[in-house]
Amino acid sequence: MIRFALRLSCGVFALLAAFEPAAAQSPVYTVAKVAVNTKASDAVTAKEQAIREGSQRAFRKLLSRLVAFKAHDRLPELSASAIDGMLDGFVVREERFSSTRYIATLDFTFEAGKIRDLLNRIGLPHTDQQSPPVKLLPVAQGESVGETWRAAWGALDLKHGLAPLDMPPAQAASLPAGMSMTARAVQVLQGRLGAPRLVLAFAAVDASGGRLRVALRGEDAVGRFAFAQDFRVYDGDIAEAAGRAARIARMALEARWRLTSLKTQGALDGPAPLESFALTAAFDSLPAWQDMRSKISSISGVQDVEVKSLFAGGAELVLSFPGGAERFAKAAAARGLTLDRSGGEWILRQR
Rank of each mutant, 00 (worst) to 15 (best):
C10P: 11
C10K: 14
V12E: 12
V12Y: 09
V12F: 13
F13D: 13
F13R: 15
L15S: 10
L15W: 05
L15T: 09
L16W: 06
A17Y: 10
A18W: 12
F19Q: 14
F19E: 15
F19T: 12
F19Y: 11
F19G: 06
E20V: 07
E20I: 04
E20H: 15
E20S: 14
P21S: 08
P21Q: 08
P21L: 09
A22S: 13
A23H: 13
A23W: 11
A23Q: 15
Q25P: 01
S26Y: 05
S26R: 11
S26G: 11
P27W: 05
P27I: 02
V28T: 06
V28I: 13
Y29E: 04
Y29C: 03
T30Q: 10
V31S: 02
A32Q: 09
A32E: 07
A32R: 14
A32C: 07
A32G: 11
K33G: 05
N37V: 04
N37G: 08
T38E: 15
T38R: 09
K39E: 15
K39N: 06
K39P: 00
K39Y: 07
A40S: 15
A40H: 03
A40W: 01
S41I: 15
D42M: 09
D42G: 08
D42W: 11
A43H: 10
A43F: 10
V44M: 10
T45I: 08
T45N: 04
T45Y: 03
T45Q: 11
T45M: 05
A46V: 01
A46L: 06
K47W: 00
E48H: 07
E48P: 00
Q49P: 01
A50L: 01
A50V: 02
A50N: 00
I51Y: 01
R52Q: 14
R52L: 13
E53F: 05
G54T: 02
G54W: 00
G54I: 02
S55C: 13
S55E: 14
S55R: 15
Q56D: 06
F59W: 10
F59E: 00
R60D: 10
L62C: 06
L62R: 01
L63S: 00
L66F: 05
L66S: 02
L66H: 01
L66A: 04
V67C: 03
V67N: 00
A68D: 11
F69G: 05
K70N: 13
K70Y: 09
K70S: 15
A71R: 06
A71G: 04
A71C: 09
A71N: 10
D73W: 09
R74Y: 11
R74S: 14
L75H: 06
P76A: 10
P76E: 11
E77C: 07
S79Q: 12
A80Q: 13
S81Q: 15
S81W: 09
A82I: 04
A82M: 10
I83W: 03
I83A: 07
D84C: 03
G85A: 13
M86H: 05
M86C: 06
M86A: 08
L87D: 02
D88L: 06
G89Y: 08
F90H: 14
F90E: 02
V91D: 14
V91A: 12
V92S: 07
V92D: 06
E94D: 13
E94G: 13
E95S: 14
E95A: 15
F97L: 10
S98F: 04
S99E: 15
R101K: 14
